[in-house]
Design a binder for these strands. Structure first.
Lengths: 140, 140
DNA sequence: ATTTGCATTGGAAACATTACAATTTTATAC
DNA sequence: GTATAAAATTGTAATGTTTCCAATGCAAAT
């Protein structure tokens, strides 16, 4: 049952399930490539021909508001979504544009701005540079 | 001479100065509030009535490419610019939307993606939550 | 079966960003 | 200082993305 995880995630986050919502969550969980709204829309249009892009926008925003997905604003040209919500950081290759998940030391989330009265809900860490593949290509 | 710092910055970054470029850099240095393209444009239109928004776009992109300013993609609704390029982190208040500068944790440079062959050029750290002012307002 | 309240749809509108050709400004050479 | 070439700026048009909204569809509750 491929949709089981998707449904579980929605329920755990208090999001009312629907065909579209399950399909979108399922797509995110099955494609950990940080897709954009358009990528999700194009891919799912095949299974759900009536799917509206507005629904994808609404649904992904809803998911993000409920903490069911992460909204990534790393690349200024495109907004990406990540179905993996366990704490991790990202690396964006400035050459190929791909976005990678990276592990960080276990305690990095404890690092906080101190003494200014900020109530921190989310910590975001990302890096930009050149990935391994592109580094090899560029040096050959 | 208010424009001295702006001119110095441009020259240090190898950017050919012009009236518009100096004014835009001067504005960023004098307004550490992380303005958007539009805010810069509206503010500077008063002094330079012929200023084109295209110029503001081109100039800020040029600055960012030369490392003269930081492009901040923290808020998905708006792209902001920061004239302070010394390493620091940011805090965005989800209630009032303001963006604050915060000190980086002392050991931020230790926190790196390790062993995956990534060549890291930039490190970005930011937090989201509720700022002191809004926290007080919300609890009263 | 009817009502009520969300969710979805699709087209239109709003908005942000970029492309480009014309113009102006600045730099360089004479 | 003038002529020439190069670069920067401008304004409009084009593009692309995101949101709005009214109509429709669906599902749970009575």
């Amino acid at each position: 049952m491929i949709n089981k995880d998707a449904l579980d995630t929605l329920q755990k986050c208090g999001i009312h399930p629907s065909i579209q919502r399950i399909a979108i969550m399922d797509y995110l969980l099955g494609h950990p490539t940080h897709p954009t709204v358009d990528e999700v829309y194009v891919a799912l249009s095949k299974e759900i021909p009536t799917l509206s892009k507005t629904t994808v926008y609404n649904t992904l925003r809803l998911f993000a508001e409920h903490g069911a997905v992460l909204m990534l604003t790393i690349d200024e040209k495109k907004l990406c979504f990540d179905g993996v919500v366990t704490p991790h950081a990202h690396f964006m290759c400035k050459h190929c544009g791909r976005l990678f998940d990276v592990m960080l030391p276990a305690d990095w989330e404890q690092i906080r701005p101190s003494g200014q009265g900020y109530r921190v809900d989310e910590t975001h860490i990302y890096y930009k540079g050149i990935c391994k593949d592109c580094d090899i290509k560029l040096n050959s």
